[in-house]
Every structure is written in structure tokens, then in C-alpha cells.
Write a protein that binds this DNA or RNA. Structure first.
Lengths: 201, 201
DNA sequence: GAACTTGACATACGAGACGTATGCGACCAC
DNA sequence: GTGGTCGCATACGTCTCGTATGTCAAGTTC
């Protein structure tokens, strides 16, 4: 019966992160009170500072979780899209891009990952979690550059621009009056723009 | 001798905005103290709240000023690039994009317009100043779509994606270890990606 | 198995920072 | 010249974060 201590600790960490996700998404990082947040989780600020160091640490943990979930979903969609074709990795990239745009319509992801995240933690490329989403895109881009599907562009630059464009498009869609009407336009424009990276057939 | 009152008021507004630009750029919006900031301008918080309503209002005014400066510079560069050619508006668009990327290397613009701005004021498309930069890009895109230089893509979507990609690229360049080496890669990748919007020759 | 030690978490405290309500004094009108 | 208006300063209350200290259960050692 060893590890009852760590078990409880992980449980509390999870509860705090869950409460933080809700509070940050609803009120924004700056306006979220740590007292309320921890009370919702049935704890106090003591637990928070012990586990995450400070408020930024908590945000980093939340962003890490969300980022991981996004990357997992993108991978899943990418795999599905590339699977039933005969290795059309280009379709997979477009599908991933569209998936990012759609995922970012979730207020939780918008507010926390796209708005507060960069402002508080700095540019995504230097996040502690190292940005799983970007890594996912980079993997795809690298494979396509090496296989000649994409032009011989700088892998890091292309990944960054594709990801940035997708997430930025999502922000625009979400802020628009009628997201349902605007989304397809954003996806289409993204596909066109990404096509600039494609090797001439 | 009329308007000595308004004159002084505008002068103070300008001093506050200038002090805010410096404070926000150096410490970030959240960590900038309004007491220090106003003291630097030789005033107190009373003037600030009277002129801008609250801290967000001040940020909005600062962002508006920076955005205007950026748009003016982009217009200038775009005009120069299109001028000596025979109406090659495409080159002008690329030049504008590159200009945005370079401008965003300025810490003031990065921190205030790209990071804190969206987080505090929300998505740029719904800023009070209505985002001059975006308007500038939109103008160019619309002209090119109508003249057939660009594919018949949704103007709003294309403008948003181009702008977002450029600014995002700038964030990446600035966060990298050696900006001087990375910048050309970002500009090249941007040009390639934008080329996806270009009508097939 | 009992005393000791560790460490996760709670509580208490201090230091700002924001926003508002109130007061003052200079400009403008008549 | 007098009254009013308005821009700005001052004073206050409230909230929040971060740290320092206390406490009690879980793990450890003999």
C-alpha cells in the first residue's frame, strides 16, 4: 500500500487544473481569483502554490493539458484522413489545419491557449510544454518536404506559419457574427494559402 | 485665446499615452503600475481615469496609436514597391507582409499589439480602432481580387490569414535565438504561402 | 509497533494595485 | 467680476497575489 501520498497529490493537482480550466475560460486569466478557484476544487491557495509555484505555473499546466488534447485530436484526424487514401499526406495536412480551426472555436481553447497563453507565457515556441500542436504540424511538414510533396521550404518556418494562420483564422471565425457561415470561408482560404507550399504538380 | 483648456488636455493625453507605451512595452500590461506610469508623465491616476475610463481604455488608445503607425508605414512601403514597377500590386502585397514582419520585431509592437492587445481587448477584428493594419491589407487584397491578380477568394478571409501569418511569423522570429538568421526564412515562407492566393499565370 | 521525520496543505500576514468618491482650483461665459 | 463648469488631484475601500508560519497525516526507522 505504498504511494497513497502521491496518489492523493495527483488527484489534487488534477482537481486544481480542472477548476483552473473553467475559471480561466470563463473569466480570463487576469480576472480569475485563485481563492475562488481553489475553493471550487475544495482546497486552498496553499495547495496551489505548493504544486505550481505561482499563478503562471498553473496556467502553464492548464495550457499544457489543452495543447496535448489538441495535438492528440489533430493526430487522430490526420491519421484518419491519410489512412483511407493511398498516402495522400497533403490531404492530411489540410485536414489537420481545418481541425485546428474548428477546435479553436471552443471558448476554452480560444481564451486560454490563444489569448492569455501567449500574453502571459510568451511566444508558444518557448513554452515549457514545447507546444505539442506545433510539433505535430512540424512532423507532417518534414515528411512532406523530404518526400517532395512540399517545396523545399524551411521546415520550422512553414510549420510556424501554417499553425499561426490556422489559429488566427479560428480567432477571426469565433469573433465574427455568424461563425457557421464564416468557418467554411476560413477553411477554404487556409487550403488555398497552404497550397503555396505544395510542389508544382 | 480660445481653447487653452482643450489644448492642455490633448497635451496631457499625449503624455499619458507616451508614458503608457513605454511602461507597457517594458513591463507588460499586467505588471505596469498606473501610479508609476502617471507619475512619469507628471500627472496622477485622476487624469488617467478621467481621460480613458480605465486601464483597458488606456491600452486601447496606445494600441490605436501603434496600429496607426504600422498601417502608415505599411502603406508607405507598399506604395514605394508598387510605384517603380508598372503596377505590380503583387510585389506590393509581399512587401507589406515583409514590412509587418520586420515591424513586429520592435519589442513595443510585439508586447503591446501582438501579445497584450488581443488578450485584454479581444480579437483585433473587433477593436475599437477597427485595426488599420487589417484595413490596409484588405484594401490591397480587394483590388487584386477584382483585377484578377488574385484568385477569387473571400476578401475578409484572405486578409485575415495574410495578416495573421505575418504577425505570427514575426512573433516566431523575435522569440528565436538569432533573429537576423531567421528573418529571411520567415519572409521567404510568407511569400511562398501568399503565392497560394495568386491566380495561376 | 512506537517515536520520529518528512512533506503536503492550511492559515495568517503584508504589500501593492485598481476603481470610486470627494475636493480643489483654473478656465470660460455672461 | 462673479458663478459655473470641468479637468485633475487626493483619500479611501476592496481585492488579490505571494510569503512565512503552523499543523497534521503518511511514511520511515529501529
Amino acid at each position: 500500500m505504498a504511494g497513497k501520498r502521491l496518489e492523493k497529490m495527483e488527484e489534487n493537482r488534477a482537481k486544481l487544473i480542472a477548476a483552473a480550466r473553467k475559471a480561466f475560460a470563463e473569466k480570463g486569466f487576469a480576472n480569475a481569483s485563485m481563492d475562488e478557484l481553489t475553493a471550487d476544487a475544495g482546497l486552498t491557495r496553499g495547495a496551489l502554490y505548493h504544486n505550481f509555484g505561482d499563478k503562471r505555473g498553473l496556467l502553464a499546466a492548464v495550457v499544457d493539458q489543452l495543447d496535448g488534447e489538441m495535438a492528440a485530436r489533430a493526430r487522430e484526424i490526420g491519421a484518419k484522413s491519410a489512412g483511407h487514401g493511398e498516402g495522400d499526406s497533403w490531404q492530411a495536412l489540410l485536414a489537420e489545419g481545418a481541425a485546428y480551426i474548428e477546435m479553436a472555436l471552443d471558448p476554452e481553447i480560444q481564451r486560454i491557449v490563444l489569448l492569455d497563453g501567449p500574453a502571459v507565457l510568451g511566444d508558444p515556441s518557448q513554452w515549457p510544454s514545447q507546444n505539442s500542436c506545433l510539433a505535430e504540424t512540424r512532423k507532417g511538414v518534414r515528411a512532406m518536404v523530404e518526400s517532395g510533396v512540399m517545396k523545399p521550404v524551411d521546415i520550422e518556418a512553414a510549420s510556424r506559419l501554417l499553425n499561426g494562420a490556422a489559429l488566427n483564422a479560428a480567432l477571426w471565425v469565433a469573433a465574427s457574427d455568424k461563425p457557421a457561415e464564416v468557418l467554411p470561408k476560413a477553411v477554404e482560404a487556409f487550403s488555398l494559402m497552404a497550397d503555396g507550399f505544395r510542389a508544382k504538380s
